[in-house]
Every structure is written in C-alpha cells, then in structure tokens.
Design a protein around this nucleic acid. Structure first.
Lengths: 129, 129
DNA sequence: TGAGAAACGAAATGTTATAACATTTTTCGG
DNA sequence: CCGAAAAATGTTATAACATTTCGTTTCTCA
C-alpha cells in the first residue's frame, strides 16, 4: 500500500458514492498540486480491486470502496437512479445458484457481476409524492 | 421496426457473439456503402433493447441478441474470457432472491445485470492441456 | 394534402480506458 | 553502504465507447 493508492482509497471512502475514475483523477490533482494522468489512477484502482478493497460497478463505470474487505466477497449492488447511491449486499445464496448454473454448463467462473438498478426507499417515496 | 434497426439486429444474429457498437457501425457501413455515425447505431441499439430483442453486456461494453425475446426476460450471462463467447441463461430463482433482497431494503428494482466471467467448458479444457 | 411526430444524417464533443515508453523509488543480497 | 533487479509512478498519445446538438427526411393520419 503506497501513498498514492491510499489516497485514492481515502478519496473513495470520502466520496460517499460510486465515483468515476476521472472524478478521482481530478480529486488527486486537487490534493496534490501536480498533474496526475489517467494511468496513474487506473493502476491504483486495479491494485485496490485485486486486494478486494474496491469494487467496480459495471453499469455505472464507477468505483466504490468495499464494505467488508476482510471477507472473501461476492457482492451485489443496488444502485439508485434517483440519488446515484449504491448499497452493497452479500447474499451467498445467489453465489450458490450461479455456481450451480455454471456447473451445469461446465463453466469455470472467476468473477461475478450482480447489479440491480432502481430506486432506493427514500427516492421511491419522494418520487411517489 | 425500420430497415436500419432490422439490419442492426441481423448483424447481431450473424455475428455469433458479443459485438461492440463500433463493430456494428463498421458492419453497417460495409453493407450500405455510405457513412453511418455512432448515434445512428446507438439509437437502433437502444430501440432494440427496449423491445427486449437485444441485451447489453455491461462488463464487455458489447451487445448480444436475446435468445428468447418472447418471454419477459431476466437473464444471466456466462462470458468466456477464452473465446469471448457468451451464453444466456434464465434462472428465475435468482430473480426471486434479488427481489427478496430488494424488498428487504425497500428498493424498487427496474433492471438487473447478472454476469459471470470465466472459461467455458471448451476453453477450460484447452487451457488445462 | 398538410401538420406533427418519429426516425435518421452529420459533425462535434464528451467520457472512459489503455498502450508504450521513460523515470523514480523501493527492496534486498552481497 | 552499494548496486542490480523489481515495483511503482510519470508522461504522452491514442484507443474505445457514448452522447449532444441540430438540421433534414420520412412516416402517419386526420
């Protein structure tokens, strides 16, 4: 864990929601006052994802810190179209079903992406009003 | 269903695998011999997705024709890193669990993305050899 | 047939991600 | 401590993916 990687991770923690790589590039530039190129931040993100500290949300092209990095994780994301927030959940039953379906195909799984878009309770309520 | 939209759908059927928007742009250009801009093809893709004829694979930025457009679908994709192929499956149990988890959060779901990356049976075997 | 809606063409631009290569920093055996 | 090897980072350029904007054409239907 280097200074740069820690900084990217801290920015993600601070951000409070899914954050795009280019937002992070700007944020790192802001803290330092020197140029930071896209590869720099993308490399840090790849590292953090390998370590299980960060996840990528495919349907948003955005990144979030993991809620429980300690556990071998297999997460699903609920993404609110209203407030652009995301909630991470763990449901091993889904992993189980996916493993079962994969086995039926002879498929050797390595990475899972499970994302649900919709409206969070707060935004759904606001919307109904 | 217009001529252009039909052409894009046919190209997807013919392609035999996940296809990027820019590959489709090139392919449409080829068939016609006139320029076709990105918005033209993206509009057709959005239309076809609305109709449930095409799905987007988020983790590849690519598009595939749906296997069973007739049914209200709720699909999962198994994507092979070896041969870049994808298999579409329906497993209503997963939709059920996701609905259950969503309900627990008060979350109103609209779209689901479930993608599993790995190696298909063929490629896993070839890899082991 | 003519007004409104839907679809399409075209140019520019915005957004996301990586390739390729140079340089700096760290690590660790001697 | 020193220097070679490995890891990380900087820098430039470009690839890949997607949308905005606006003007024109085509379709529909009263």
């Amino acid at each position: 864990m280097t200074q740069l990687r820690r900084r990217v991770l801290e920015l993600l923690w601070a951000s409070g929601g899914p954050t795009s790589a280019y937002q992070l590039i700007e944020a790192v530039k802001g803290k330092e006052s020197r140029p930071v190129g896209p590869p720099t931040v993308y490399r840090a993100l790849h590292f953090l994802m390998e370590q299980g500290l960060v996840s990528r949300i495919e349907s948003l092209n955005a990144y979030v810190p993991c809620v429980h990095p300690e556990r071998d994780h297999d997460c699903l994301f609920f993404i609110c179209s209203g407030c652009r927030s995301s909630v991470e959940l763990e449901d091993s039953r889904i992993g189980g079903l996916l493993a079962e379906d994969a086995a039926a195909l002879g498929f050797v799984a390595s990475r899972r992406t499970v994302e649900v878009e919709g409206m969070c309770a707060r935004c759904a309520e606001a919307d109904a009003t």
